[in-house]
Simulated assay, not measured.
Amino acid sequence: MLSEDQQDQLLLSLFATAEVMGQQLTQGAALLMVEDLREYSEPVLSVALRNCRREGGRLTVAAILKHAQAADGHPGKDEAWAIALSASDESETVVMTREIRQAMTASSPVLEVGDKVGARMAFMSAYDRLVIAARAEAKPAQWEVSLGYDSARRVIAIESALRSKLISEEAGAKHLAHLRLAPPTEDGLAIAGLITGQVRANASPQMRKKLAEVRCIIKAAQAKKDRQRAKDSQRRRVETYLRKRQARAALSALAEQQLNESGPSSSPGTGRSRWC
């Protein structure tokens, strides 16, 4: 929030900007504008007023907020959805905002059942609502790191976020130091091996027991999927056969009907038309 001195400076800037844009602000109107804008930082408002002067038109709170909100760091809906989809891959390290993470809570159950279109609609509805609420309180985007299990991709994602200035140097250094100084344990490698298919023999007995249980669950689930897939395939073959049989019967009936309607076209044995 702006200090009292900064609010006084904003008031003067509003009068000057309005004059440059060919308007005259009353003191009451300017004070109301300061009240609506004081949640934003001084640099953001300064840039927003400059953009309003360059854009032209009328100086309104809505025009100033449009430029102020464009600089708050919240990604657009499509970009946010792309980030959310990347985060659904547990191997990927993703840098996302709090609003994206919260919107994923609404869309994840729909995405898990395979309805990508429905998940996108649920995500965007929730994300819109969250960003509007954040902007109403003048809260800029706060980016967080969601670590995936692929250590090589972790480093790439964090370094990319640092270059894009999405996270601070301190936060990036903390994550990178942790990755470089804390190698994965044998139990951690065993868990990763469960996903990649590489068996680790050095895991603890307790971990090996748990992994064996998980493998049994995975195999049972896969067998169930295979049986269901075979049933679905057989059902589709039967449906295809029945549709073809119905089509052949319909064609045969149509041909017979046309033959009955047309009748014989010539007298038997003469080869001449019966109308000759």
Results as ranks from 00 to 15, higher is better:
residue 260 N to D: 11
residue 89 D to E: 09
residue 237 R to V: 13
residue 196 T to W: 00
residue 259 L to D: 08
residue 215 R to P: 00
residue 20 V to K: 12
residue 176 L to K: 03
residue 110 V to I: 15
residue 253 A to V: 04
residue 268 P to D: 02
residue 6 Q to P: 03
residue 52 C to F: 00
residue 226 D to P: 04
residue 192 A to P: 02
residue 98 R to K: 08
residue 107 S to A: 15
residue 222 Q to D: 11
residue 56 G to R: 01
residue 137 E to H: 13
residue 231 K to F: 10
residue 270 T to K: 02
residue 106 A to P: 01
residue 46 S to Y: 06
residue 215 R to M: 05
residue 169 E to Q: 11
residue 32 L to Q: 15
residue 112 E to Q: 12
residue 252 S to A: 15
residue 172 G to A: 15
residue 196 T to K: 02
residue 52 C to I: 03
residue 26 T to H: 06
residue 179 L to F: 10
residue 213 E to P: 00
residue 54 R to E: 08
residue 164 S to N: 15
residue 228 Q to R: 13
residue 172 G to R: 03
residue 164 S to D: 15
residue 19 E to Q: 13
residue 106 A to G: 02
residue 79 E to P: 02
residue 198 Q to T: 14
residue 117 V to S: 09
residue 20 V to H: 10
residue 117 V to R: 14
residue 90 E to C: 02
residue 46 S to R: 13
residue 23 Q to K: 04
residue 250 A to Q: 14
residue 274 R to N: 10
residue 274 R to I: 05
residue 195 I to W: 00
residue 116 K to G: 06
residue 182 A to H: 14
residue 12 L to E: 14
residue 111 L to W: 02
residue 2 L to K: 06
residue 237 R to A: 15
residue 275 W to V: 07
residue 105 T to L: 09
residue 227 R to H: 08
residue 261 E to S: 07
residue 151 S to G: 09
residue 53 R to Q: 13
residue 107 S to G: 03
residue 54 R to M: 12
residue 183 P to L: 07
residue 114 G to N: 07
residue 14 L to I: 05
residue 125 S to W: 00
residue 268 P to H: 03
residue 10 L to I: 03
residue 99 E to L: 04
residue 27 Q to M: 12
residue 231 K to N: 06
residue 226 D to S: 08
residue 267 S to T: 09
